[in-house]
Design a protein around this nucleic acid. Structure first.
Lengths: 241, 241
DNA sequence: CGTCATTTTGAGGTATTTCAACGAAGGTGG
DNA sequence: CCACCTTCGTTGAAATACCTCAAAATGACG
């Protein structure tokens, strides 16, 4: 299916999330200890996947859970009308493929070339039941993704395309290779992926980017690289709701 | 703070969710065994809360996690503009109050009189680490809520108010006291709560309900009770996207 | 039964969607 | 290396649907 490698080569999967309890970092941190990573690595296969490759299809029998190690993946659903909705982008340290009744609830496709850890669901279940400490980190991670999903709901309700796009950019700043104050942001996904994620038409995204470019808030080095030129203006736009 | 009772009176908290692995039920099932419920009950306080009572405020130090046993609760955030967004309604069997860095990420308020299990976060952490089987059910529950949040994102992107409201009704059919084929649905929350949940203006919700009433899809027995008169039309509306 | 909050209704303004067409980019084969 | 083709992205103009503001009607509650 994919090019796979012995999982020993690396230290094992990592999970990034903000935990329940206070620890004054605002940046999502690595949750797992080296021991826990090795434990996951023992049941994981590290696979290297080219860009635009379908990982699984909505409704298919779910055998594997994935953890993203490098690259970007999108989880999406096709609507009856043929429209597509991207329910989330998965970045390094994100987990995806958690099923419902043994079936995937959305499809997944790589956006860029990616390196993934692929873990059989039954093996993961077994390991988690054996290692409460590791499982606790999974609880934290899933909860983190739940909070992110709630935040996205707020984005989707905004009526202005530029505001939504601005929030999208700030969201990307939370993920590697960005830091919260990065000024250059890679946009590996296509405009229509962004549109499907933000619940806008492709044209609306295009007009929003153009509008932000024209007023000097951002600029494009190329189509897949944004430069923030006026962070204050961007933050104002994000807060204007 | 609230009226509290010995937690012994009942069998303990219940959690409802669709598990990862197949089990051909489409209806969310009770996850916990009687033993697990007793275990949670041992560290939980059962509190009876009047309607419209604030449970906690966004940003406050998070000491407790809640599990809804009876009634309906809303989790919401206030936006800079003063607008309100309801991020979720919590029904019996739902868990809420999971914090980020020791702080609640949204406020919570009872919609109806409610009975809640209140559990100290540190005690819950301790119990979960001690009981992997129980913790596994928590993973399933949080994952379930994550999927529901993703489904809601699809609702929010719809442009038509009537379609969003129709999906809201169908969502309510998933929760007690409804069954998937119920024809009478209680709407305990106010129109503006629904508006804040669906990302619409209060007026848009009102017009949507009126429109659905006029064409005979639904009718109102009173303002808080909907009767589905044409299920096929409702389902068509839900699917039209 | 009166008061207050909630809900409904009306009219105009605004932003996005849709439809259509053009321009740019990337990949393939001659 | 160039031509060609397909996909992706940009731009323009009209239609649609919701939002906002304002006011009336309904219902809840003491």
């Amino acid at each position: 299916m994919f090019l796979s490698e012995r999982s020993m080569k690396r230290s094992g999967p990592s999970l990034r999330a903000v935990p329940f309890l206070q620890g004054d970092s605002t940046v999502p941190a690595e949750l797992l200890t080296p021991r826990q990573r090795r434990q996951l690595a023992a049941i994981a296969t590290r696979v290297r996947v080219p860009a635009r490759r379908l990982l699984y299809r909505e409704g298919a029998a779910a055998r594997w859970v994935f953890i993203c190690d490098e690259g970007v993946v999108k989880a999406f659903r096709e609507l009856p009308s043929g429209k597509r909705r991207v329910s989330s982008f998965l970045f390094p340290g994100d987990m995806f493929g958690l099923a419902e009744n043994g079936r995937y609830v959305s499809s997944a496709r790589t956006v860029t070339p990616a390196v993934l850890y692929r873990i059989r669901i039954d093996e993961l279940s077994a390991v988690l039941r054996r290692d409460p400490e590791l499982q606790f980190q999974i609880v934290i991670k899933v909860t983190h993704q739940l909070r992110e999903s709630h935040r996205r709901s707020i984005v989707l309700v905004r009526r202005d395309a530029a505001g939504r796009f601005a929030m999208f950019l700030v969201m990307l700043l939370q993920h590697p290779p960005c830091t919260p104050h990065s000024t250059t942001i890679p946009l590996p996904m296509s405009r229509s992926d962004i549109a499907d994620y933000l619940g806008l038409s492709l044209e609306a995204v295009s007009r929003a980017t153009r509008s932000l470019t024209r007023d000097g808030t951002i600029s494009f080095l190329d189509r897949h690289t944004v430069r923030i030129r006026n962070r204050a203006a961007l933050d104002r736009l994000v807060a204007a709701m």
